[in-house]
């Protein structure tokens, strides 16, 4: 069905899915940063508990999965079409005004996807289906998600793997926001350069923010 959409429709869906994923990343980062709060992981665990129990979030979780799948599927379809549109490459490869990372979205995307699987196994499936340590906050019993995170990031290989992964997330995001606006037809002489700036800022803030967490946990 997706294949039958026109190129523009595909790109619009791709852009909307992408923007949704960016919004998810921001929420995710916000919660993660709570772990750096010096309160015995209380705020973080409460937030994590909220995320796994709130019915709205639980519904959104499926929307999120959908978003991921559509974004990945369309990305692959569009990329294959683009490759097919130029079966013979140039000898002197391209001068082009596009940003550097725009040429590697499929590659950075693939790396992100590969590590995403590892990430889900490490945390998401563990939280959903695995054994979790417990903690008492007030007189309530909560699962100690924070402890799980801290244990993981005390191991150097994990920290390095995550930093590597998150760097590629940053590269991917560098071309994300403004490109999505462009696909939606939101192009403007004055504001498009601003969108480029926002894009880069998002890439640095999101990737940088996420990287900070394993780094600080490992050092402290």
């Amino acid at each position: 069905m997706v294949l039958k959409y026109s190129s523009i429709t595909k790109k619009i869906i791709m852009a909307l899915a992408g923007l949704f994923l960016i919004s998810f990343l921001i929420v995710h980062l916000g919660i993660n940063l709570l772990i750096l709060k010096n309160d015995g992981r209380e705020a973080f665990n409460l937030a994590a508990h909220f995320m796994v129990t709130n019915p709205l979030i639980q519904t959104m979780q499926w929307v999120l999965f959908g978003g991921f799948i559509i974004h990945i599927l369309l990305g692959v379809v569009l990329q294959i079409q683009n490759w097919m549109a130029r079966p013979q490459r140039y000898k002197v490869e391209g001068y082009s005004h596009t940003s550097f990372f725009s040429k590697f979205m499929i590659h950075t995307g693939a790396i992100i996807l590969a590590f995403l699987v590892l990430h889900l196994i490490n945390f998401f499936f563990r939280a959903k289906f695995g054994e979790m340590p417990g903690v008492m906050i007030g007189d309530q019993h909560y699962e100690d998600m924070g402890l799980l995170v801290i244990e993981k990031f005390k191991s150097l290989p994990y920290v390095l793997i995550y930093i590597f992964w998150l760097l590629f997330l940053g590269f991917h995001l560098d071309h994300a926001f403004h490109s999505a606006l462009q696909s939606l037809g939101l192009n403007h002489n004055k504001y498009t350069p601003v969108a480029f700036g926002i894009s880069r800022a998002l890439a640095i803030l999101i990737a940088g923010g996420f990287i900070l967490i394993p780094l600080i946990i490992y050092i402290s």
């Binding site: 190129s7 790109k11 569009l78 079409q81 549109a85």
Partner: peptide, 14 residues
């Protein structure tokens, strides 16, 4: 719509 459908049919990229 018509012109975009045509570029897709002709096999241009996206």
């Amino acid at each position: 719509q018509a012109t975009v459908a045509e570029i897709d049919r002709l096999g241009f990229g996206n």
